[in-house]
């Protein structure tokens, strides 16, 4: 995945309403009308949020004019999970090296101490 795509996904997720919409869609397809119900915002406002989510590839929408059901797409979320996992490996390896490095440092210091005695 390109970094730009990742940024787009993060930007789309950086809003509590959009995250709530995604959580709602985890239950299955829902119409825009139904999605708007629990929120104290207008239908056009919900549509704007859906456009952002659609642009990020997090949802797909049906073509029917009246009933445009929204459906969750997991691809970008999986990409984020993979990205987080890469970070875990990166730090894990680094901390192994840190462990060795700290031992080296102390090995040297301990030798000095022994010399002093």
């Amino acid at each position: 995945m390109t970094p730009d795509r990742l940024s787009t996904t993060f930007a789309a997720l950086a809003d509590p309403t959009r995250r709530a919409i995604l959580a709602r869609l985890a239950d299955g397809e829902v119409s825009v009308q139904e999605l708007a119900e629990p929120f104290a915002i207008s239908l056009p406002a919900v549509s704007r949020h859906l456009k952002v989510l659609e642009h990020a590839g997090l949802i797909v929408r049906g073509r029917e004019a009246q009933w445009r059901p929204c459906r969750l797409q997991a691809g970008p979320l999986k990409d984020i999970a993979a990205w987080v996992e890469e970070y875990r490996r990166y730090w894990d390896e680094s901390f192994d090296r840190l462990d060795i490095y700290l031992n080296e440092l102390q090995g040297k210091e301990k030798k000095h101490e022994r010399k002093k005695k």
């Binding site: 995250r19 709530a20 959580a23 985890a26 969750l72 997991a74 979320l77 984020i80 999970a81």
Partner: peptide
Amino acid sequence: WGECFELLQEY
């Protein structure tokens, strides 16, 4: 972010 994480786990 919790709900996104849950989605992630599910998927």
